[in-house]
Design a protein around this nucleic acid. Structure first.
Lengths: 205, 205, 205, 205
DNA sequence: TATGAATGAGGTTTCATTCAT
DNA sequence: AATGAATGAAACCTCATTCAT
């Protein structure tokens, strides 16, 4: 039997019991992913950890990929929500504050469930269906770009979407690398202050 | 009894014939990696493409991982050489020139064999043996940090190794994201100039 | 990553269907072992003969060794039962009768499925997991030694466990060698009478 | 390439150098057999340990089996020599002395290189070419039977070859089992005396 | 809807043996 | 005679997925 290629979750769970099953499966997926890594994780194990039969798992998710994709989607949504709400909350404040808040928020994302985040960014091949689902960044660039638009007169670069692109990549990359190489660095203020300075100097006149 | 072995290449080829075999194997690995991606690549296919028996492949490399690790090592060395030589060549020039050159060099790395580079960065799980071999960046941070030391009076941040860390992550991340999302962007000057500005503003004064 | 696992059977079959599968697998193992010998036997062949997919085989037994070990265990248990029941049945009879019965029982063991017995004793390396499972003899020595204890006054040697050890080895070795070299010898009474005489002369008085 | 089936050593070494090579190979075979066991032993390893190329090994031995068979043959010859010379030396002495000497000699065989002896008896499948080469016992039964003929009037059993068969199996089995289960037992006199008593009582009027 | 036994394609790896040099 | 690179059949085993119950 060849693996199948149909990546959307199979059906929305209608009853409460189903919802619980789906939750159990996703929680188990997280646990197994963190413990074993993406490649070594397998659906039988996930079903076992979820306390659910393998058949039930396939009732809700048509493939291993769909399972992981659903998890990533969840994760992404929470990140985007975080960014959006922070931005909405601070949009009247000066640009520097907003940049600082963005940096802090990004660090927070890496602090909540760093193991899982690392699996997402370092172990899941950006191929096939994951290609799309893995780049939250595109959406965040848009959000940020829109915000920059509202502050255009204070911002030096003319190409705002390019600027947003650079900002997002920079913050994410530096934060991620720090999380991987030197966890303590994340906790101190030195890093976040330094990144904020970089952004301010780059963006503001 | 099936012990799982080392990841280092098995033995150095002594005769000319075997040197050719090893080369053929590594070339084939590159081809297959680019064509099929890391996960789908398999040793049988690689041996076939190399025009070599599967036994010969295992004579020199104990596993698919060892094969890929050897390739990465090669790649890393060429990157480090590139950075070192550029820096040696320009070390008397003003800091801005050096930064610009660094950005251009990084872009070049992504331009030479972008497919392969992408496989390395996006498909190979940073786990196990790859964890170590995949971070060229650490070495480059050192090199850059040493260079900054010689320009200390012109550089604003006091923590030079942190500054080097941030610079390396930034340039690499932005370049990589551009290569993935928008190839044309790489070719134009806009991106490289923008990154150079970012670095200059961050570092100087 | 290919860890090498345990030797215990993987999981007890719960449903009737799987119980049948396990039986089919063990029966097939016997057949293949007898037909091809231990070394040439392989799991794919066994699964094929069992009319079961290779995956099913591995669901219940982690390796060829586990398969054979399960078979040996079964066999051992039946041997021990045979000896125990014979001894229980005859324990009031004179020692000579018991010895004769022991010899006859041992011959019977070699007569029931001689091919399989030969595979067990001559082809399976007494190494690793088999080391333990192959020595039924230890258990039989204990049983016999306990019995001798009850007849101590009629027995010449003082060291009863040594005597039991010698008796067991002798009967088994002679019987086995006869089975291998000269099957007809087993059927006649000459051999069993001769061994019984040997034991009686050794033990009694 | 299928394994070939030709079991005699390939050619008698004519020159001194060749003789040394053959010796080195057999010595290495012994070492590897003892260290890794029969199944895990492989010809490449043996050649390496012998300090000889795999090609040279195959120049003198057509197969792995032939290699091991040659070793066994050597071993057998030395055993037979030992028995024959002991018997020649003692043939004028009383039967009891001869039996005692036989037991001692057998124990000695198990003491010289017990590891190797164990490999021969427990790990090498008595199949194919080994079937023949592994039963020294047949030859020893003949020798002993001939000797018994010269002592016929002192011996109780009429069927002398059966008696010899039983004696040989008994001594070998008990000794071997002791060597495997309880090495110290071999060293003490208790075991050898006990076996000698058994034989005497069995054989002598 | 849930269960879990069954499937089997397909990957990994070994090692006896050959043969060009 | 010796070398050792190359061969490839053949074994091992996993795990995503299906489907009878």
């Amino acid at each position: 039997m060849k693996p199948k290629n149909d990546f959307a979750p199979r059906k929305p769970p209608r009853q409460i019991r189903s919802k619980e099953t789906v939750d159990a499966i996703l929680t188990a997926t997280t646990r197994v992913l963190v413990a074993d890594g993406y490649n070594a994780a397998n659906t039988n194990r996930i079903a076992e950890v979820a306390g659910v039969s393998i058949g039930s798992l396939y009732q809700y998710f048509p493939s291993k990929e769909a399972l992981v994709a659903a998890l990533i989607e969840r994760h992404n949504n929470s990140i985007i929500e975080l960014v959006e709400s922070k931005l909405a909350e601070l949009k009247e404040k000066p640009l520097e504050k907003v940049l600082a808040a963005l940096v802090v928020a990004t660090i927070k994302v890496h602090t909540v469930n760093p193991e899982l985040h690392r699996v997402f960014t370092e172990q899941i091949p950006r191929v096939g269906q994951f290609e799309k689902v893995l780049d939250v960044e595109k959406r965040i660039v848009e959000i940020l770009s829109d915000y920059f638009e509202t502050e255009r007169e204070r911002i030096r670069p003319q190409n705002l979407s390019l600027a947003a692109f650079i900002v997002v990549q920079t913050v994410e990359a530096v934060t991620h690398a720090a999380a991987v190489n030197d966890k303590d660095l994340l906790e101190t203020n030195e890093l976040s202050e330094e990144i904020t300075i970089l952004l301010s100097r780059y963006l503001i006149n």
